[in-house]
Simulated scan of single mutants.
Amino acid sequence: MNNLTHLNENGEAHMVDVGGKDITHRTATASSTITMQPETLAMITEGKHKKGDVFAVARIAGIQAAKKCSDLIPLCHPLMLTKIAVEIQPQPKKNTVVIRATCQLDGKTGVEMEALTAASIAALTIYDMCKAVDKGMIIGDTKLLEKIGGKSGTWIANV
């Protein structure tokens, strides 16, 4: 395993210095799922939720979360993201919603945490908006799907 870069020579947490790194185009895509009762998913997809368009609110929440990632996760660099896309796909046969978040920038550090945060918060927002009708929803399978750019190059999950 590689050395953990968020620890200094004394084993203390610190923010990694990326000042000497080259600026490269970087992209990361992450996903999360939320499983619910069939009636809950139908209510959302048919536009019958009293709170409005659940997927639109979740999409906006995911975008905001990616922008606020460094405020939420200690030692995470604040980034000037150039693109954030949150796609929400209902899968009625599985009573599941799949959320895919992609973040991009031209910078010195990766955007994996921003993509993971966007997908997670979008799923949490769906839960929050629908918890009154379905407290048993399950959020899971949050994962990095791919990252492109930087010193380590391209990585794609084996899914």
Rank of each mutant, 00 (worst) to 15 (best):
N10Y: 15
S70N: 11
V16C: 03
N8F: 06
N10W: 15
K94V: 04
L145V: 05
L116G: 05
G153C: 01
G11T: 01
R100G: 00
L145T: 07
G150H: 00
D53G: 11
I138T: 07
L4K: 07
N2A: 14
L81A: 10
A58Y: 05
L124W: 08
E9M: 00
G149I: 07
K108H: 04
M1F: 13
L7Q: 14
V133C: 00
F55S: 04
D106F: 03
K131P: 04
I139M: 11
G107C: 06
M80I: 12
A122K: 08
G62C: 03
I148F: 03
P90D: 12
L75H: 13
K94W: 11
M15R: 11
G153V: 01
V97W: 04
T82V: 07
V98S: 01
A13E: 10
G149Q: 01
V97M: 06
I73K: 13
L116I: 03
R100C: 02
I34Y: 14
D53L: 12
P38L: 12
A122V: 07
A61C: 03
H49L: 02
D17V: 00
F55P: 02
E112N: 11
I99Y: 02
K48F: 11
I73M: 10
E87P: 07
V57F: 14
T45L: 14
G47I: 08
I60F: 11
I63S: 09
L7C: 10
V57A: 12
E12K: 05
T33F: 15
E39Y: 14
T154H: 12
E9A: 06
C69F: 08
A122D: 10
A115P: 03
T24M: 05
T142C: 00
S31G: 14
Q64S: 15
D53F: 13
I156G: 10
E114D: 09
